[in-house]
Structure formats: C-alpha cells, structure tokens
Design a protein around this nucleic acid. Structure first.
Lengths: 353, 353
DNA sequence: TTGAAAGCGCTAACAA
DNA sequence: TTGTTAGCGCTTTCAA
C-alpha cells in the first residue's frame, strides 16, 4: 500500500489538489466553501491521509521542528530541560528532536549540520564552548538558535541558564557560616562557561569572605562526570589534607569526590563537607544526601523553547540576550559545621597510614 | 545570505547540476571523471554547500533518520538505550531523533504520525502496550519498526528486551534463599508487557519455591514512578504487615516503597528486604544500596538499532522475532536474611502505634 | 563522461 | 470559491 497523497484525497473528494490543500490548511480553510471543506476532510480521514512533510517543507521551507543539542543525554541534567522545552513546543505545534554529541566537537558540528540540512526551524543548544566558531556561524546564519545551560563569549546567540555564579556563592557562604575556612573547588572544564564562571564565582566568594585560597584551592576536572570528579579529588587528596570542605561545580563531580574520599577512608560530612550543583534526580536519596543548588531545569527548557519560538515566529522582536533563572540552595546532609578543634586530628589520622 | 544550492556549486565548477550531484554522491562518483569530481568537491567546499535533505528526501524517499519513541525521557531507563542506539545508527550514517510521549496514547500516536509524515526511515518504539492498535498499524505499514523494552501481544513487530521474567525469578530465588517466605510484589501497570510478565514470573517463581501467595501478594502500581510505588506500598502496609520482603517490578517503584516504609518507621533491610529491577543510574549509591537486576540497556539500544537497520536496508532477511538479552542479579544492601524468629516481633512492634 | 529533462508531493500566486 | 500552473532542490533516467 503506497502512501496516499494529496491528489488522491482531492480526487476522492472530487476537487482539485489545490483546493484540497486549502481545505486542509487551517490558515486557508476560510477560502473554501464549508461543504467542500467537509468533503475533503472526510476523504482525507477515510483514506488515512498523512501529509508528506518533506514535500511541504521543501515548498514552504518550514519544518516545525526544533532541535535540542545536548552533550550527553545520560547526564541527568538534560532530560528535565528536554521535557520543559518539549512541553511548550508541542503546545505550539512543533516537534522537539533531541540529538547527542558525546561531548565531541566533531559530532556536534556534524549533528548541527545534519539538522540544518533537514531544515529545522530552530536550535536549542546545550553544548556551547566559550570559544565556539561553529555556534558563531549558526548565529550569523538565519536559523534561530538559543543557548541553554552554557554560553559563548562572543555573545552571538541568546542564552538561558541558571544563575550559576549565585549558586556557587550560596555554597561558599553556607560553608563559611558553618565555620569552614579551607575550601577546595572542583571545577568543571574551563572551556565552557559553566567551568569558568563557577570557578570565578568561587574565587570571588572566597575573597568576599576573606577566606584563604590554597594552592590546591581550585582543581579543574577533565569532564563533568563522576569519574572525572573522582580523579580530581584523588589528586587533591594526594597532596593536601588541610581543607575541610569541597565546592563541586556539579553534582556528578561531587559524587566522584565522595568516592575518592571513601577510597582513603575519609567520611562526609564528618571529615569533609561537600556541595554539588544542579540538584539532579536522586541526589536527595544518597547517603549523605547531597547539599546542592537547585537549578530550575524544567523552566530553563521552557524559557529556551519560548525564546526560539519567538525568534522563529518573530513574535517578540526584543532580543532576550542573557536570561538567568533564580537558583536555590538545598541543604542536606553532606555539609556540617567544621569541628574547628577535632578536625585536623581526624584528617591527620586518616592520612596517617 | 541564502543557502547555497547544488546548482550554485555546479555553476561554480562549470558543470551541470546533474553532474555535480553524481560527483558528490559516493555511490555515483565513479561515473564522473576524477578531475570533475575534484572540481565539484572544491567548489562545494568553498561555497559551504550543505545539501537540502528535504529535497533529497522528497526525491529518494529516504531520510536517514530513525525515531526513538520513549514514554518519559526523565526515566533513567531510557537514556542508555538512546545512547546505544545512537552509536550504531551514527556509525552507519543515520541520525537518531528522540521523542517523548508523556505516557499518553494520544501524544504517542501524534508523535508517530508526525515522524511518519517526516519520512523517517524507521522506528524504535519503547512505549508498547499489550494491546496497541496503533503499533499494529505501524506493523502493517511499510515503515520498519522495532519494539524495545515492551512488546505487544499481537506480535506484529519484532522485539528486543531484557529477560524480565528471569530477572524477577532471580529476585524471588535470592529472597527465598535468604529465608524469606512472605513476599509481596509491587507490579507495574498491567497494560504493558513489563507489568504482566513480571507479575506472572513472580507468581510462577513463588509457586516453584512453594511459597504462599498472600491476598495482598501482588499490588499493581498506577505508573512506573517513585510516587506510584510509594502509593502502592502505603496501601499494602495499611492492611498487611506480615511480609518480610518486596519484589518491585522496577527500581523507581522500589524507591517509592522505601519511602512508604520510612513513613511508618520501617527500615530496609532490617524490617523488610526490597529488590528492584533495571539497575538504573545511581541505584548503587542509595542507602541502602538497592539489590536489583541489571538489564543491559545500552546493548538493548544497540540491538534494537541494528535490527531496524537490517529491516531498513534489507540486509538480513531473517526476522528477529523476540530477542531477550541476559540479565544479572546485583546484590546490594537492601536485601538481608529473614530473621525468622525476631521478624514478626519487629513488624508487630512497628505496627503497634 | 556529461547534459537535458522529468518529477518526488506539496503550496501559493495567478486566473477564471 | 475553485482550477491551473509553476517551482521548492534534488536525483535519475535517457540521450548525446
């Protein structure tokens, strides 16, 4: 059974293809007599007509598809963003398609190219690097695109994200109030805004609180994964046991840090307090429950999708520029008051063997 | 700057569009002289030519897209499947697009329709119900489709999944060996194979072990979510405290059960042992670490993608039918030997107030 | 080896 | 209100 085409429907309804097209399109339906509309609709229904989107797209250069480009769908950060975006897109007749880049620049450019070739109407991109010529290209092209979660320094594309700097500041202040003075930051890679800004916010917050920044005060992880966090923490622990708290740039990194501590017999929060960032799924159920910063991921998806749609439909001509959504510190069990006196003893004891 | 078309490239290279087309297509490149190929390639490169996939698709009725339809991308079950599928698809020049149905039949049919209209070359569907006319339609259509994780009773489509029945059997045997006799099953909804089969495997395993099945022995959850699992467990606990173990149909349901236990002051595994199924991300890091069944999700994605590609390219004409991947019991801390004597006392004590 | 021309299924400008 | 027609950008048969 070959697919039924518009001509088939038109034929069945006894009208011309053009008329059938008008009858089926809500925007042009009024140009057609009510009975013709009904006849065409019934024929379409009866034959099970499904319009060929490629033919339509070729003609109209519209696809009603928005692509969401993520580095790794397995990172619990992205599914909520995807759902948020999908929700508003679906409501307005668009389909969201999700593509993964594995954190590889080549894959990323291939995917974006492929989506462009397919004529997607817009992009939501979650893979931005600080220096990202590919996205700058996208910015100068006519295809609407919005960045989410990370931005580029060139500012060539609008951005929606959580207020990361504030998030980190909240962590440092929380720890400072608990009496921690020697705090280490496990940073995300510095080629993305999430790495650089969080690290700089950390530095700033430490300065504001007049806390000393140790030599090993900021350690950059090679990726935003549990494994990379574990690695980084191992190295920190190998050369420095004088700190009492860790501000991780991300929940997954925090989990890795927890692992590295366990390996050398250190306990959280007894020996070292840890904070994460993102409040990913299940972070509340760990032991210890992770003190972290809640980022409104779903809302970010909603905002990003709304922004691309505005761009696509030129609905709202004022550019959004940067939009930072509010964040919130969630205190759980992974942070505890620094036991000023007993701590060095414990840490030393742990380091002993 | 308008998009550059094939004619533009042809013009720049001083050849006809047809020739340029042949030169750029690996399959027809040999029909063109080597120097012409080079000239065209260089022109394409220089102009930044990106072929219009809609035009090509319209002509060839191929899109090199495979759609993965999932009920809820937020369920940690699906991202690994997506990655596995993407990996093999990408290697073979296809793009995977992911769409969410929110577990709603209407959304599901709308999404499938939309993807069909877009001419996707194949489907991997993770939303099958036991009775699913929509998927039967898909089966009779010419569009290659493979089910993953759940199947339909009609058998109209090939299926790749984990060996759920065996998984549940492993759980029951594990608990039985620990001395548990009164075991409750928190089942997934019965309209999907995952619910029905796991429940029936549970019944069978209990029978095989000659264990009694209490009236409240199987409780069906309203969804595969933490909230639904909590609800179900609450109801079970409200009328029965005589059991010592729970076999949940899924990790999320198990988490919910844990919550419900905590609400009434019961502890796991001290009071009640619990097993999950899927071995979702982070299940190893909870307290207690969840004893569960590892399902090779990534491999399932790989197998499903391979199967659709075979169908699409008619590479391998033997139908795959059902393909069950091996599973493995992962014992962690949520299960413990039933303390035959002290248990009733504890449970009663807990029920007392 | 290359060019010419038709046509995939649809929409939209124009005519009737 | 409806029909006619051209054409979106590409591939592919047929001729040269």
């Amino acid at each position: 059974v070959d697919r039924v085409r518009l001509v088939d429907v038109a034929h069945a309804a006894g009208v011309h293809a053009g008329t059938a097209s008008r009858a089926l399109n809500p925007a042009t339906r009024h140009e057609v007599s009510r009975q013709t509309v009904r006849r065409v609709e019934r024929a379409a229904e009866r034959l099970g007509y499904v319009p060929n989107a490629m033919a339509r797209g070729l003609r109209t250069s519209r696809s009603y598809i928005v692509a969401l480009v993520v580095p790794d769908i397995t990172n619990p950060l992205f599914p909520p963003i995807a759902r948020g975006a999908e929700q508003v897109l679906g409501q307005r007749g668009y389909t969201l398609v999700l593509t993964n880049t594995n954190n590889e620049r080549e894959t990323e450019s291939a995917q974006i190219e492929a989506m462009r070739a397919r004529g997607v109407d817009g992009f939501i991109v979650a893979t931005a690097r600080l220096v990202d010529p590919m996205l700058d290209d996208l910015g100068t092209s006519k295809v609407p695109a919005v960045l989410v979660n990370r931005y580029t320094d060139s500012g060539s594309l609008p951005y929606v994200g959580g207020d990361d700097r504030r998030g980190i500041t909240l962590c440092v202040e929380h720890l400072a109030e608990l009496g921690h003075e020697r705090i280490v930051h496990l940073a995300a890679p510095a080629d993305a805004s999430t790495g650089r800004d969080r690290a700089s916010a950390f530095r700033q917050a430490m300065r504001d609180r007049k806390l000393p920044l140790a030599a090993s005060g900021i350690r950059v992880c090679s990726a935003i994964t549990v494994a990379a966090g574990r690695d980084a923490m191992r190295r920190v622990l190998a050369k420095d046991r004088g700190f009492t708290a860790v501000v991780a740039a991300n929940d997954l990194i925090a989990l890795g840090a927890l692992d590295a501590m366990a390996e050398v017999g250190l306990e959280c929060p007894a020996d070292i307090s840890i904070t994460g960032l993102n409040d990913a799924a299940f972070m509340d159920r760990l032991t210890p429950g992770l003190t972290t910063v809640h980022i409104p991921l779903h809302d970010m998806g909603v905002a990003a999708a709304t922004a691309v749609l505005d761009l696509i439909e030129r609905t709202n001509s004022e550019p959004i520029g940067q939009r930072l959504l509010p964040v919130e510190l969630i205190v759980r069990e992974s942070t505890r008051a620094a036991a000023v006196l007993s701590r060095p003893t414990r840490a030393l004891r742990a380091a002993a063997p």
